[in-house]
């Protein structure tokens, strides 16, 4: 097990785990925030797994999540009938996810070196940041 995989394990334990708790309990706004955060973190998990297993092809999973994850969150925003009651702490989550994205993508780019693989990483990072910015606002009802 290398550091990349350790990072992925940490993200699953410390990121996805709490998100599951948030999505399974509490009000609708809290649940949607948790689901949104989970999809964004999942993308980072796939990036770390791809690097950790030394399988560049696995980044395709992250690429797909970076567009389908936000789409899935927008489905919930669109079709949930109850009004959003997002907790105030949700405001702090999106900068946290942004920081995590940068903290994951930049070291990965450094480790990959310039080339097509790095361009793909940057595309994934940009898609994720854009999707995260839009969905976290949409979940808060803005």
């Amino acid at each position: 097990m290398n550091w990349w995989l350790a990072g992925a394990a940490l993200l699953i334990l410390g990121g996805l785990g709490p998100c599951l708790w948030g999505a399974a309990t509490g009000g609708t706004g809290r649940r949607m925030t948790a689901q949104n955060t989970a999809t964004l973190l999942l993308c980072l998990v796939f990036l770390l797994l791809a690097q950790g297993y030394e399988r560049p092809a696995y980044t395709d999973l992250a690429l797909v999540v970076s567009v389908l994850g936000p789409a899935g969150t927008l489905v919930f925003v669109r079709l949930f009938e109850t009004p959003s009651d997002t907790p105030a702490a949700a405001r702090l989550l999106s900068p946290l996810v942004t920081a995590a994205t940068v903290a994951t993508v930049v070291p990965l780019c450094v480790a990959t070196g310039p080339g097509r693989a790095m361009a793909k990483l940057i595309v994934i990072g940009v898609l994720l940041l854009a999707g995260g910015a839009v969905t976290s606002r949409a979940v808060r009802g803005g």
């Binding site: 599951l20 999505a23 399974a24 649940r31 949607m32 948790a34 999809t39 999942l42 919930f76």
Partner: peptide, 8 residues
């Protein structure tokens, strides 16, 4: 919602 997390 929970099901989508299960999928992830």
């Amino acid at each position: 919602l929970v099901l989508s997390l299960l999928g992830l």
